[in-house]
């Protein structure tokens, strides 16, 4: 595990005041915010900045980190000594409201156990903190249900008090019909409780993996369906691949590009299942042979067709 220089990440001096830390964080949060940033690897930088801020903006954590960090440089191999944080009391309120499960091993090693029983405080009881993470699934997973594996880095103290990070793999059942943005609550999979109190819960926020074939709005799914010009013009019964399997659909004659065919109830499953919309994409055959060029030339001669009539006004 490498030592992380949180001051370097935020671009502030070790003597920076709380106000300077706050200003640096705000500047970088704007620079790397995934919604607006054009910087490469903005999301990765944002996580680092969030993590650095979670430590340096918290006086208790910063004091403990400073005591430890004076002997290390960024990237240097690092293992926290036993009881490195003796004498510091963490509030146990959680590192930050961001997705703390995404923080680095380094952070988990140092602060993931915040709130654990301190020396002489064995009778202290407190429920463990809830943790948050995102889980990426495919659209097909919500149609059929699935099991996905996530790996969490969990701090754990050995019998000598040395804190290490344990990889904790969870095979999570993805319920059929889950929507983007919904949370799956895993009881007791959050931070451990103190003094025999129960562990917190783990909340997994569901996100769909990007898939250029689909657009999803709530439970409705939109999918492009390529068709030939004659299928669109004359009508046809064609096989369409959908997230729930291939279906036979009737393309009405006289269809234009962009026409939506609604397949009721074939969206994301649920008590009120969504609909699947097949958006027709009329694909022209290439004019790459004498025969194809002749057919296009015949249409040009024989059809009285002016697609720009309406835009001329």
């Amino acid at each position: 595990m490498e030592f992380r220089d949180y001051y370097q990440i935020l671009g502030v001096a070790k003597t920076a005041t709380a106000d300077e830390v706050k200003k640096a964080y705000r500047r970088l949060a704007r620079k790397y915010h995934p919604d607006v940033s054009k910087e490469p690897e903005a999301e990765k930088h944002m996580k680092e900045v969030n993590e650095a801020n979670a430590v340096l903006s918290d006086p208790e954590k910063r004091a403990a980190y400073d005591q430890l960090g004076s002997r290390y440089r960024a990237g240097q191999e690092f293992q926290p000594p036993p009881d490195w944080d003796a004498g510091f009391e963490f509030s146990g309120r959680g590192p930050s409201p961001t997705d703390d499960a995404d923080f680095s091993d380094f952070f988990a090693n140092l602060f993931g156990h915040t709130g654990r029983a301190r020396h002489g405080a064995d009778d202290f009881r407190m429920r463990g903190q809830d943790r948050h993470a995102k889980i990426l699934i495919d659209l097909a997973d919500t149609y059929h249900g699935a099991t996905r594996t996530i790996t969490l880095h969990v701090p754990q103290a050995d019998e000598h008090g040395r804190v290490g990070v344990r990889e904790h793999s969870l095979h999570v059942q993805i319920p059929k019909g889950v929507k983007e943005g919904q949370h799956i609550r895993l009881s007791g999979q959050g931070s451990p409780g103190l003094g025999g109190s129960p562990a917190g819960d783990l909340f997994l926020e569901v996100q769909f993996a990007p898939d250029a074939r689909y657009r999803i709005e709530g439970r409705d799914v939109f999918q492009t369906l390529p068709v030939t010009p004659w299928e669109a013009a004359l009508g046809a019964s064609i096989e369409a691949p959908t997230p729930s399997g291939a279906v036979q659909v009737k393309v009405p004659g006289g269809s234009q590009n962009g026409r939506r065919l609604r397949l009721k109830g074939r969206g994301i499953p649920g008590a009120s299942p969504g609909d699947l919309y097949l958006v027709l994409d009329v694909v022209l055959p290439p004019a790459d042979s004498d025969k194809a060029r002749e057919l296009y030339a015949t249409m040009a001669r024989e059809l009285d067709f002016d697609p720009r009539g309406k835009v001329r006004g």
């Binding site: 999570v172 799956i184 895993l186």
Partner: peptide, 15 residues
Amino acid sequence: MTQNEIVTGVLVDEV
């Protein structure tokens, strides 16, 4: 050490 478990959660919108 890697620990494997199969866990089933509840959807927050259902409960």
